[in-house]
Design a protein around this nucleic acid. Structure first.
Lengths: 225, 225
DNA sequence: CGATCCTTTGAAGGACGTCAAGGTCTGTGG
DNA sequence: CCACAGACCTTGACGTCCTTCAAAGGATCG
């Protein structure tokens, strides 16, 4: 039988209470914008003028080495907040993985709100801590897990974040590889192996629509803890 | 000639202004404690009762996989603050790398101080952001850098943090390896190579006392940026 | 000054990367 | 509706960087 946990507490960046959707609109001007697939939302080292929340779509945040090697630090999905910086500049480049609509908020407004509202200030700390926890987990993955373990961990993460065993991946194999510190071929081989082991199958006629058939067995591939 | 930057702004966790050393002692009870080499200061998932600042010594923070694979997330050196958690429990195990004396402060005291003092609250956010930036840099290293690049980056980091080209490493090769996502043999080979390339030499009769002879050349091994 | 820990170095193996080819899916224009 | 181009994915063969295994030479400390 198939068991699913519904615990959503670890969902990263879900912060409707940051002021994006619930704050008095009299205080905050809330606009939105749509980016086509592949378009850059902001670049590394650019001034951090806005904070974003995803209404629809998916975003990748990454850094590059001088020779083009890329490390994706996080994928941002529906409702996730991203682009918040404590300092002046962005530390990542953010791009739309697919067509993506975001809510925008001026960082300066958020800062001033935080100065007067201790609750918002605490939320900024909570949000940063959530990002830190994600990065800490990812360091363990990148430093010490094998290819199959990384791919399993990725699928488990996507399963948890979408809250469904029908995982629709917006990103391609190269994006996944650059998130997991692998090559796209190694990711492909790992997914194939999980398919042949009966852990997952594909839906429709694309390899991006994945059905987790056996979450317990999948978790057995990831030695977390 | 040998060039050195004196920019210390990125020094992680240096927070004398957190209340550890400069706050009115009438408000805060400040005690200290000494741990012998190898002793655990706190364990993963334990309640986060105290926040620590290093008076003397060095500390490693790490997480384990079930089969014993270890990822060290950070080394904490003199003046660094560590063990601060926004949540209830520690997310890492912390151990003294060598004999280490720390200042202790009750987390609850810090929390209550933050509630009344916005400056302290901002410092907590800044500290968490500093940790996040370090983790982000480390993800790039673990995901996309080669062995020699990782070791070079590590030596550059230690050089910067100690503010001296005479780097005295408190940790052994295994610790370095577990920080860099490598094996101790690979670290040893990389250090040897840098020695034979004239980038560094050793001081005294131990391999832990390293002299950076050519920081520019060393930086050439690390493709950061 | 002996026991233990740490580091280096060599040799061999393996996991993942690289290179290459072919298949599938999607969108577009005829 | 079909043809075609381009993007994406899989799979195989081979290469390589790092790990594993092993041994020997310091360094440290009782």
């Amino acid at each position: 039988m198939f068991v699913r946990t519904t615990d959503q507490r670890l969902q990263p960046n879900r912060l409707g209470d940051l002021g994006f959707t619930s704050a008095p609109t009299s205080m905050v001007k809330l606009s939105e914008f749509t980016y086509r697939k592949g378009k850059e939302i902001f670049g590394e080292k650019e001034p951090a003028e806005y904070v974003y929340q995803i209404k629809r779509g998916a975003v990748r945040s990454y850094r590059l080495l001088s020779d083009g090697r890329r490390q994706i630090g996080a994928f941002h999905l529906k409702d996730d907040v991203f682009g918040f910086e404590n300092g002046e500049n962005h530390r990542f480049t953010a791009e739309a993985v697919i067509e993506t609509t975001v809510y925008l908020m001026k960082r300066a407004s958020l800062q001033s709100m935080a100065d007067t509202d201790a609750a918002i200030s605490r939320n900024l700390l909570t949000m940063t801590t959530t990002n830190l926890e994600h990065a800490e987990n990812h360091m363990l993955l990148l430093g010490r897990k094998t290819a199959i373990e990384r791919v399993a961990a990725f699928l488990i993460e996507m399963d948890r974040r979408t809250g469904s065993n029908n995982v629709s991946l917006p990103m391609n194999r190269r994006d996944i590889a650059d998130y997991l510190g692998l090559t796209l071929e190694t990711v492909s081989r790992a997914v194939s192996r999980l398919y042949y082991e009966g852990v997952l199958s594909f839906r429709g006629n694309t390899q991006r629509e994945i059905v987790i058939l056996d979450l317990i067995k999948l978790q057995g591939f990831d030695p977390q803890g």
